[in-house]
């Protein structure tokens, strides 16, 4: 290992720990959010270092982008008017502090001992996955695991996504985080230029997902980013949840996925056992459906549902 690589590894690791600490200890919430976004960027670099480009893509889209924007939107809402939340004082009392510090230290020691004592060479499923890639619907190993070998996990993950929207809407409509937004020509111009690029990139990522890092989730997040930009610039309007078509679109990814699962079951093959030769096509169909759903889901979670009545105001 060259000296520069070693320095890079040490620097990445140490700054990650430092950044986590500063994020969580930040005196202001705004500072904590900005640092958390930076934390996402460093995580993306670490994923790149660990040969995990799929995760680096997801982290760049989610950790450094989407979660940060969701946090900022929530903060903007929280800070309107007086506060607001039933926030208790930070933990007081040296005894509690001591116990807590010991717990954290204990967790670190426990994990370190466990990690250092793991068997070598490590048991792994890589030997199971790679020889079966020919029979799977995707040649990129991670996509094959996500949408074929362990597609059941992914189906339920999409259920979690839809559940998050249903849960958020069940709380009632919430208005756009910054009602004072007025159209800015510079911003709208920028968004008009960026939008086609975002859609193009999303398409590119889905297409690549079959044989290289990328896929529906990353692509969907890029679409969501484009949608949120539209809302932020005042060019777009939030959902009208009263219209069933929006709800159907939000659920479409789950409908497609469960449809494929039940279809394969009813055809006698067993759930999610793609018929020979159809695997690639079915996976592509699922991926396209998921991209749209994931994009809409995150926009819905950002903007919330708008009652028709509220929209008219």
């Amino acid at each position: 290992m060259s000296g520069v690589t070693l320095a890079l590894d040490l620097l990445l690791g140490l700054s990650l720990v430092w950044l986590a600490w500063r994020t969580l200890a930040s005196p202001t919430l705004f500072g904590a959010i900005v640092l958390f976004i930076a934390f996402g960027l460093l995580m993306a670099l670490v994923w790149a270092r660990l040969d995990a480009p799929d995760i680096a893509l997801a982290e760049a889209a989610v950790g450094a982008g989407l979660t940060g924007v969701l946090l900022l939107a929530a903060l903007a809402d929280l800070q309107q008017g007086d506060n607001l939340l039933p926030v208790r004082e930070p933990l007081r009392g040296w005894l509690l502090q001591l116990i807590l510090a010991l717990c954290a230290l204990g967790l670190f020691t426990l994990l370190t001992l466990a990690l250092l004592g793991l068997p070598s060479p490590p048991p792994s499923l890589a030997g199971q996955v790679l020889p079966r890639l020919d029979g799977a619907g995707a040649s990129h190993p991670v996509t094959a695991v996500l949408l074929d070998f362990r597609a059941w996990d992914t189906l339920l993950e999409i259920a979690v996504l839809l559940l998050a929207v249903v849960a958020a809407w069940s709380l009632g409509s919430h208005p756009h985080p910054n009602p004072r937004i007025v159209g800015s020509e510079v911003l709208q111009g920028l968004v008009r230029v960026l939008l086609p690029f975002a859609v193009l990139s999303a398409g590119y990522l889905v297409w690549r997902g079959g044989f290289a890092p990328g896929g529906a989730f990353q692509a969907g997040t890029v679409l969501a980013a484009a949608g949120i930009l539209l809302l932020l610039s005042g060019l777009g309007r939030p959902f009208n949840g009263r219209h069933w078509l929006w709800r159907a679109l939000l659920a479409s990814g789950l409908f497609i996925f469960t449809g494929v699962a039940l279809g394969t079951l009813l055809l006698g093959g067993g759930a999610l056992d793609y018929p020979a030769g159809l695997g690639y096509g079915l996976i592509l169909a699922i991926e396209l459906g998921l991209t749209l759903t994931i994009g809409l889901t995150f926009i819905a979670l950002y903007a919330g549902e708008q009652d028709a009545a509220e929209e008219r105001e």
Binding site: L155, L156, A159, L162, L163, V166, W244, R247, A248, L250, A251, L254, F255, T258, A261, L262, L265, A271
Partner: peptide, 16 residues
């Protein structure tokens, strides 16, 4: 499989 997928599908239908 039905025992998990049917309620999932119903949940999505009930939402729409």
């Amino acid at each position: 499989v039905w025992l998990v997928l049917l309620p999932v599908l119903l949940a999505a239908l009930l939402f729409v």
